[in-house]
């Protein structure tokens, strides 16, 4: 097992390097370099920028050096000092802008993942076991709608509907009195009350997809020989279902967690813009609009790395529950 994890970790290194290069390229993509934009921005707001400050900034980010050296300096600053660069539109270090928002994004994403599984797996099992029943058709149809309606549209419609019937705007993650308050137990409780709206909205598409996959996988497994064997042994239907085919069918789904995570984070980005949540989405959008590239690139870098870690965790989880993978991994 440890061997397997080590093996997977080693595989990740080139992937992480590639991600960092892409993030760096994204930072460099828009025309005009960062420093000029930054100085323009400061001068627009009336601050005079001294020569020495410019030189200091140039040195810090190696802007006078060739591109590949800039990349290494950027990486060095991140790895050694946790310095992701500066956001000129916020006039703060990127890490400070991102910090709390990233945590909230991850909290919403993980909640969404859990909710997706909690809803989809039981429904998928039901639909497979009672294939072609009325409820199976109903779930399938709802699933299709869930896949067809984009997240932002669900958000729009729900916000509109709630506002229209109750007059309450369900935007934001906190009640007004907690929005700018420091973290406290009461604030967490407040968050837990409001987090369900975005979580459920983001979960729709993923749930619909997962139900279909689970139903299909389980249908495949239900007709397999080992199910007949277990039945011939005298195992009761319910116990049989959950001990054998359900477990086998769920295993490959565990490995899809890694792939659903980027989708959830994508969904979160767009829903949080519609719902105006204090997460990464709105800031990311603004960063792209104003070409605040250190901020935008860092977001992409961090979100991707978190996804990679998620994939790794799901692979380890899969190896832990599935002996075939575990032993296959050792042999490699």
């Amino acid at each position: 097992m440890i061997h397997y994890i080590g093996h997977r970790l080693l595989q990740l290194i080139p992937l992480l390097i590639a991600i960092s290069i892409i993030a760096f390229v994204i930072i460099q993509l828009p025309p005009g370099d960062y420093l000029t934009t930054y100085i323009n921005q400061l001068e627009l707001s009336g601050t005079k920028v001294s020569e020495s400050a410019i030189v200091a900034l140039e040195r810090q980010y190696g802007l006078d050096k060739p591109m590949y050296q800039q990349y290494f300096i950027w990486m060095k600053n991140i790895l050694l000092h946790g310095d992701f660069g500066r956001s000129f539109s916020w006039n703060e270090p990127v890490s400070k802008v991102i910090g709390e928002r990233l945590v909230l994004t991850m909290v919403i994403s993980i909640f969404t993942l859990i909710v997706t599984w909690l809803i989809a797996i039981p429904i998928g099992i039901y639909s497979a076991v009672r294939q072609y029943s009325v409820l199976d058709y109903i779930f399938s149809f709802i699933g299709f709608i869930g896949l067809a309606v984009p997240n932002f549209l669900i958000a729009l419609v729900i916000v509109y509907f709630v506002f229209d019937t109750t007059g309450i705007a369900i935007t934001g993650l906190f009640s007004p009195e907690y929005a700018d308050a420091p973290w406290s137990f009461a604030k967490v409780l407040d968050l837990l009350q409001r987090i369900w709206v975005p979580v459920l909205i983001i979960a729709t598409a993923g749930t619909a997809g997962l139900i279909r996959t689970m139903r299909g996988m389980l249908l495949d497994e239900l007709s397999k020989q080992y199910v007949v064997t277990a039945r011939a042994k005298g195992v009761a239907e319910k116990k049989l279902l959950f001990k054998y085919p359900v477990r086998v069918a769920v295993n490959p789904l565990i490995s899809t967690i890694g792939w659903t995570l980027p989708t959830i984070i994508s969904g979160e980005a767009i829903v949080s813009i519609v719902l105006n949540l204090p997460t990464t989405g709105p800031v990311l959008l603004d960063a792209f609009r104003t070409q605040d590239m250190y901020l935008a690139g860092s977001f992409i870098l961090i979100l991707s790395i978190l996804t990679v870690i998620g994939t790794l965790l799901s692979d380890i989880l899969l190896a832990w529950v599935d002996p075939r993978i575990r032993f296959g991994g050792v042999e490699e």
């Binding site: 993509l29 984070i265 990311l284 996804t307």
Partner: peptide, 13 residues
Amino acid sequence: CIPAIPLWMALAA
């Protein structure tokens, strides 16, 4: 492993 919408946003921007 790069979330699609942020990546689209980046390239579109």
